[in-house]
């Protein structure tokens, strides 16, 4: 499972403050902690910390790059912000994200093709998020076709079936699981599938447990990557156990320790 850290996000108050104050040390500390806990990539999202989104994204990239070469996942809906972040990165980054809207595909896909970056694609179009698995799969297929035309192979695309909060849309997790298993069959090599996990449990009392249970189910359906908080121990223990149960890593009595060694 490819773990992308969710913690460097302006939605969190400590990060928001750090971005506003250009406090590099705080950001760097979070970055290193998340990597130590198991993140292979770091999602960077400036949130609403400042109006100067471009400046903040470039600053975030530069701050994090000072302490780690880990893959950076540039998270913003605006193309200009991603482009500026990409230039600051140089290489080894993921674009997060495009949608199936024509205007998005027309800008983000060429950037991914040109830079060799991987790209996260949300299964939503101008009509929003489809309410069915079939609707999401259809959009996923459109994205893969458009990406192929732009010269991007499916294994560089991370499809995101869009996580909705359980306390708002309880019928959605099951539909997401169906989407995951179906989109894996769309092409060979398969497209990868990523989810932003925490949205699932927003506003609930049992965040860690709900996230863990769903992560295990999604892994069973074929999930490849997740944006989450690797410092959540129950969640990571679940993920590591999932890797063992799927025979992706060799079991030993101390397999949890082995994974963290």
């Amino acid at each position: 499972m490819y773990i992308i850290s969710e913690r460097i996000n302006g939605m969190f108050s400590a990060v928001k403050k750090a971005i506003a104050a250009r406090d590099e040390a705080t950001i760097q500390k979070i970055a290193l902690r998340q990597i130590k806990a198991g993140a292979r990539a770091l999602d960077l999202n400036v949130g609403t910390a400042t109006d100067d989104q471009i400046g903040a994204m470039v600053w975030l990239v530069e701050s994090v790059r000072e302490v780690t070469d880990a893959t950076l996942c540039l998270d913003n809906p605006k193309f200009e912000v991603i482009k500026a972040g990409a230039e600051a990165c140089g290489d080894n980054f993921i674009i997060n994200s495009t949608t199936a809207k024509e205007a998005d595909l027309a800008t983000f896909l060429p950037l991914a093709a040109e830079t060799g970056a991987k790209i996260i694609a949300l299964t939503l179009d101008k009509n929003g998020v489809p309410n069915t698995a079939e609707g999401r799969v259809e959009i996923a297929a459109q994205i893969i076709i458009a990406a192929e035309a732009a010269g991007i192979t499916p294994d560089r695309i991370y499809l995101d079936p869009i996580t909705l909060p359980i306390n708002v849309a309880q019928d959605q997790p099951k539909k997401m699981l169906e989407t995951i298993s179906q989109v894996k069959l769309l092409s060979d090599p398969s497209p990868r599938v990523v989810i932003g996990l925490s949205n699932l449990s927003q506003g609930t009392k049992e965040k860690s447990l709900l996230n863990s249970a769903f992560l295990a189910m999604a892994m069973g359906a074929g999930l490849d990557a997740a944006i989450l908080d690797p410092e959540d121990k129950l969640l990571m223990d679940t993920m590591i156990s999932g890797e063992v149960l799927l025979n992706n890593t060799i079991y030993s009595n101390d397999y949890l320790k082995a994974w963290r060694a």
């Binding site: 030993s252 009595n253 101390d254 397999y255």
Partner: peptide, 14 residues
């Protein structure tokens, strides 16, 4: 036994 092979390595490393 591959599982024990891994386990011994973990134990020694610890």
């Amino acid at each position: 036994d591959i599982n024990i092979a891994k386990q011994v390595n973990i134990l020694i490393s610890e």
